[in-house]
Amino acid sequence: MIVAFSDLDDTLFQTRRKLPLGMDGLTPATLGRDGQPHSFCTPAQSALLAHFASSGVTLIPVTGRDQAAMARVTLPFTSWRILDHGLTLLRPDGGVDLDWRTYVLTQLEPLQDALADCTAAVTGLAAEHGCRLTRHTAHGTHFMTVFKHPDADATQLEQMQLALEKHVERTYDSGLHVIANANNVSVLPRGLGKSEAVRHLRETQFPHATLTLALGDSLSDLGFMNACDLAITPPGGQLLRTVTAAKLPQR
């Protein structure tokens, strides 16, 4: 058995804004809240998905999307699904895995004060930089605060990232960490996320898999990608941009 654990946005599909103008052969992959196509697979992404399907590869999404956002993904996932940055597991029948839910809530409970303090510490700064603050919950419990700029202004988001990282560094025992991409900056649990969920499924559901693949485009995907046998990343993503810019000596 081959199992592929894959990030979704900007890995298996992306919005039109991130695609070359006039690209043909696009396949709708998600719907917006208005019910209209929002994100699309390129011909290459569609070919990869078709190859997985025809080869019997078990494809498992690993995404920050919650259940409502995942319901707007139109790709035919039939196995397990990892949502909420790893804090929610959906079984193949679509139901929430209650054992994982119990474990997650046990881990989240001692982080509530730290999350609230970190959020409060930068709320004023977020307003100054024009960032919208959103508290995300999993299983009815706060697990992540996201700061998003309406124009994806890199300078404003960088200031938010630096402020959040400074706060987390001062309170390292808070159990939190900061992740960032082109659209937003988030603070969430350090030891509870995508990588832990992938390892859990590997151990409990796919212990006899002969090969596990990981697909992701962001630095925040590295944890779960390192939990698999081989990793695949698209060109132009945050991962390859970072490696390209690093200019590390070859040894």
Rank of each mutant, 00 (worst) to 15 (best):
I82P: 00
L192R: 02
P189Q: 07
L105H: 05
R91W: 07
D93L: 08
C131H: 03
D93W: 08
M144C: 13
V185W: 01
H177R: 15
Q107P: 03
V104C: 04
T145S: 06
Y172W: 15
R81H: 12
L188N: 05
L176W: 07
G130P: 04
T171D: 15
D117P: 05
T145I: 02
A152F: 15
H142G: 08
T106W: 12
D117S: 12
S195R: 10
S174Y: 03
Q161R: 14
E109Q: 12
Q156V: 11
I179K: 02
L89W: 02
L115S: 01
T145G: 00
L133V: 11
E158I: 12
N181K: 12
D117N: 13
V168C: 06
L90A: 01
A182E: 15
E165D: 14
H177M: 14
M160C: 07
V168Q: 07
H167S: 07
R135A: 14
F143A: 01
A138V: 08
P110I: 01
C131Q: 03
A126P: 00
T119H: 08
T141Y: 09
G86T: 04
E196S: 11
S186H: 08
P189N: 08
L111M: 08
T145N: 02
A152C: 14
T204D: 04
A152I: 13
E158M: 14
G130W: 09
K194G: 02
N184E: 14
G124M: 00
A197V: 05
E109V: 10
L111E: 02
T123E: 11
H129Y: 14
L133Y: 01
G175A: 13
E169V: 14
V96K: 06
L105M: 09
V178Y: 03
E109D: 12
Q156T: 11
D97S: 07
F143T: 00
L133S: 05
D84P: 04
T141D: 08
G124A: 03
S79C: 08
A138G: 03
A182H: 14
A152K: 14
A127Q: 13
